[in-house]
Write a protein that binds this DNA or RNA. Sequence first.
RNA 1: GGGCUCGUGGCGCAGUUGGUUUAGCGCGCCUGCCUGUCACGCAGGAGGUCGCGGGUUCAAGUCCCGUCGGGCCCGCCA
Length: 670
Amino acid sequence: MSQEPSLKRTHYCGDLRLSDAGTTAQLNGWVRRRRDHGGVIFVDLRDRTGITQVVFDPQIDEKAHALADAVRSEFVLHVSGTVRERAPGELLFTADAAFQAELSNGTPLSSEFRALFSDLDTKYTLSGDIHVDVRENDKRWLLTDVENNRTYDITREADSLSVYQGTVNPELATGEIEVAVDSLNILNTAKTPPFPVEDDIEVAEDIRMRYRFVDLRRPEMQKTLEMRHKAALAARNYMNEQGFLEIETPILMNSTPEGARDVLVPSRHYPGRFYALPQSPQQFKQILMMSGVDRYFQIARCFRDEDTRADRQLEFTQLDIEMSFAGVDDVLEVTEGLMKRIFEDAGEIPVQTPFLRLPYYESMARFGNDKPDTRFGMELTDLSDVMADCDFQVFTRALSTGGQVKGIAVPGGADFSRKDIDDLTEFVATYRAKGLAWVKVMEDEFSSGIVKFFKTEQLEIAQKRMGAKSGDIMFFVADRPKVVADALGNLRLHLGRKLNMIDETQYNFLWIVDYPLFEWNEEANRYEPFHHLFTGATEETLPLLDTDPGKVQSQHYDLVCNGYEICSGSVRIHQWDIQQKIFDILNIKPEDVKNRFGYFIDALEYGTPPHAGIAPGLDRIVMLMRNEENIREVIAFPKSQQGLCPLTHAPSNVTEEQLEELSIRVDIDI
RNA sequence: GGGCUCGUGGCGCAGUUGGUUUAGCGCGCCUGCCUGUCACGCAGGAGGUCGCGGGUUCAAGUCCCGUCGGGCCCGCCA
């Protein structure tokens, strides 16, 4: 038999502790760093659990030490050796035995004792953050200067204390031990990595993506991968406990032109026809309810061929949920339990249930959007009534054409410079606001070029309503309601971040409810579904379908956390006649209904139970728990903003033969 | 479809109104020395078609045009 190197390990690199000292251990891992001191070589060996310092000492094993000479960063090693306590370094000084009491009783060290350290060398000056461990009662102590990341080994001799330089690394969980290697196998060599495999690196994202296999070795990325796994596991366990069945639905389905663009897959058997990848398993999960499954869930990959953003990918993952004989409260309750379980189990983030519920219109009015970040104030205030008879034409013109005047008060904003305000004006222009009016609130006056257009009383009412104090600035936007909401809502967020008004440790869960069922599309001159075609209406507003569809309230709900929409769902329509009415209002022709949803309509008529569902977005949940602002940080192999895979370079060209089989002719030069 | 922004050794950056700069700096890398480091230290060294193409100029990393790639945003995302 050939002599294969042993791959067996007894521990992971994050496992060993002082209590393991004296035992033997075998580790596998990557070389984080090699420190060659001529006589002795230290290697930090890393795997996904942590780092252990392994030592190559020629006096322990000459062969291993010689081999270690060639070891470089990211080499893959198997080592075996003895776990040992890190021995004290050089003797720094001896001190009076009287100081022993200070080490044992946990009180802060006396200035006399501290002075001994500084007297020796200012580099040993102790910080205020000192931690003492008793290694042996009345005999040995380990003193850790946490702030300076330095340790001291203190031993009681006959009548004095000997203070040695410590070799413990307080930053490593395994920092009290090391493995003295007696056998080294270099399992593989490695090219010098393009960037160091450690946290807090400053490397362009495209470089990290190109070398994702190196990037993912970094501890924080491993932590993200593990947290994502735990979140999915927590979800599975919870849904199982709640009686839900996990059922897979097709990845190849038919295209539904409503909503986002579909990712299409050509069919070989049916030239000219295409499968679509699911934007969500919406129709299948409803059919599962019709099929008597009662409670379904799936960790489902979804695809939407739209341009991406920092929190949007071409493909993403939803915890897709549907339940029969359920209404709004049932779904919200299950979802609250699910969120609690995920955030607590995977993220160690405590969650209070039930969550607050905020009507859609109120959210729009107070925050300018339906995914408010409620971790800070600075809410929008409507001033349309107050400003109706001012002399500022920008306001009056907007108001007379059905617009609004709203404002926010920014704490401390009276200090903003002309340039600051210009930048903010440019910022709101992105959202089509034509300007940003401002008034600074001073000790006993209002300051601004536009003050002269207002009665003092008008500005006073504005100030009072917004809660602006002396030293604040009031910003106003006058325009169509949509523009006012977009501009001020985003300005609020922008300034909230810029002025550090957000408590990053807080998680504000909030249901947005009472959405309208339809939205009027000005350009197309017709109603469009606010959510999707199968969203049900509230019983009270259902009669309005015939008279005033714009006023019908849906049974749609969104769960929002810290400004991110993390779940979206609704009670579905389960009666054919109501579904029919929706198609009519939306002007979808019967033949289109038949072509696109025929199977679904059929099923509706064969005994569909009332049902409702929701779909939490796993990626965004993990983003929140990891405090990441980019979705690519929580996906192992994400695509670039243009939809390219930085590793495999998908999408790729295919051969003429492949195209021919699919009866596809590509009409561009490749 | 549109706006903004970035692209200089492996990585992160500097490079002034175009010119004394042989395109610098830090990290990393290589060689040698070093038995207690953990951002080891010391000495020496290698490594760049300044994204690509074209133009202006006596002269371009620097100015202009185009193009490719990354990012953020608007539109879009039922």
